[in-house]
Amino acid sequence: MNPFLIPRRPWTRQCMLPLGARPGLGTAAGNWQRLQEAAGGLPVPGPATLGNQPRLSGDAACCRVTPRLDRPKPLVFSAMWVWALLPILLVLWGTVGFWLVYAMAVANGSVNVTVVFPYISTCGSDPPQSCIFGQVMNVGSFLVVWISYLRFQQVRDWGCPCALNTAGLVLGLLCALGASVVANFQQNNQLETHLFGVFLAFVVGIVYFWVQAALTQQVKPRHGGGWLGPARFCLCATGTALLVAMCALHGLGLKSEAAICEWALTQSLFLLFGLFAEDFRHIESCCVRLQGRAPSPALELGAASTQTLAL
């Protein structure tokens, strides 16, 4: 007796007849009736449809149902310009959101620019603009996480040193965490926690882009032309100078000048993120694949035994 495998997936049929036996007579007809009953409604070729099949050697007639093991195709995004839009979206979102918060703070009298020019956090401390400020920072932190991970994968595929690239990924995630902390802990409520988030967003963010500037020089081949590396280096130097000037001016009590440096530093960071659009323009596709744990041999054996029916 030959086994009959009950399929659980899309399947194909391979029918074999004994040498010298004619379709529709004797063994083939009896087996066809039993196969139809055991298949439980699945289509089984009858004796009439087997008349044109070639004669094959064998001891008995059988119909073997073989599962077709089609692997699920990974989800692939092939539009190259989509990934270049992520850094541009971050720049537009952050710039428009911060200046909107500033306009609302000036309009409702939360800040008085004739006395002192406000910090960004000062503009977003009081409602209702604090709600918009928090939303802008939270969405921006999510975009930073996504951009940092894409950049990490891109540099790794180009074969750059994994240690420096991994350090860049960690720094990018810490910068995103700092932006989220700034958004959710306003300076009027939790000043210490707010300042910790500012440190992660500004100081760690500048260090992150210095790492990216170093990786740009090590990428072979270089994408985006020869201007990308010097532009990233100049913006990193400008951001570093603005960060030092902001801390020094704040320590000297020059609050308006320190606030102006903070606004300029924020725009420098946005421009550095915007430069990733040129890098991401060369991403051909992004593959998202979910892999499940492979079943143990004992489970596979048990599953196979439950699918076997002797004729």
Results as ranks from 00 to 15, higher is better:
residue 1 M to L: 10
residue 6 I to V: 15
residue 8 R to L: 14
residue 13 R to W: 13
residue 13 R to C: 15
residue 18 P to L: 01
residue 18 P to K: 11
residue 20 G to P: 04
residue 20 G to S: 13
residue 22 R to A: 06
residue 25 L to F: 11
residue 25 L to R: 08
residue 27 T to Y: 02
residue 27 T to E: 12
residue 29 A to D: 07
residue 33 Q to N: 11
residue 41 G to S: 10
residue 42 L to H: 10
residue 43 P to E: 08
residue 47 P to N: 04
residue 48 A to Y: 00
residue 48 A to L: 06
residue 49 T to V: 06
residue 53 Q to P: 01
residue 60 A to H: 11
residue 60 A to F: 09
residue 66 T to Y: 06
residue 69 L to Y: 12
residue 75 L to Y: 10
residue 76 V to M: 12
residue 82 V to T: 08
residue 87 P to S: 11
residue 90 L to T: 03
residue 97 G to E: 08
residue 98 F to C: 12
residue 105 A to D: 05
residue 107 A to K: 14
residue 117 F to E: 04
residue 125 S to L: 08
residue 125 S to D: 15
residue 127 P to C: 14
residue 131 C to K: 07
residue 132 I to S: 09
residue 136 V to K: 03
residue 137 M to W: 03
residue 140 G to L: 07
residue 140 G to I: 05
residue 146 W to Y: 09
residue 147 I to K: 02
residue 149 Y to N: 10
residue 151 R to A: 05
residue 153 Q to G: 13
residue 158 W to A: 12
residue 169 L to R: 05
residue 175 C to W: 01
residue 178 G to I: 01
residue 179 A to L: 13
residue 183 A to H: 00
residue 184 N to W: 01
residue 189 N to G: 03
residue 190 Q to E: 12
residue 190 Q to A: 15
residue 195 L to I: 11
residue 195 L to Y: 06
residue 196 F to D: 00
residue 198 V to P: 01
residue 199 F to D: 09
residue 204 V to Q: 05
residue 213 A to V: 07
residue 216 T to N: 10
residue 217 Q to Y: 09
residue 218 Q to S: 14
residue 224 G to M: 02
residue 226 G to K: 03
residue 227 W to T: 06
residue 231 A to N: 02
residue 232 R to H: 03
residue 233 F to H: 06
residue 234 C to G: 02
residue 239 G to D: 01
residue 240 T to V: 08
residue 244 V to A: 09
residue 249 L to W: 04
residue 250 H to G: 15
residue 255 K to D: 04
residue 257 E to Y: 14
residue 264 A to C: 14
residue 264 A to W: 01
residue 268 S to N: 12
residue 271 L to F: 11
residue 276 F to R: 05
residue 278 E to P: 01
residue 280 F to W: 04
residue 285 S to C: 14
residue 289 R to F: 04
residue 296 S to I: 03
residue 304 A to L: 14
residue 306 T to M: 13
residue 307 Q to G: 14
residue 308 T to K: 15
residue 311 L to W: 15
residue 311 L to C: 08
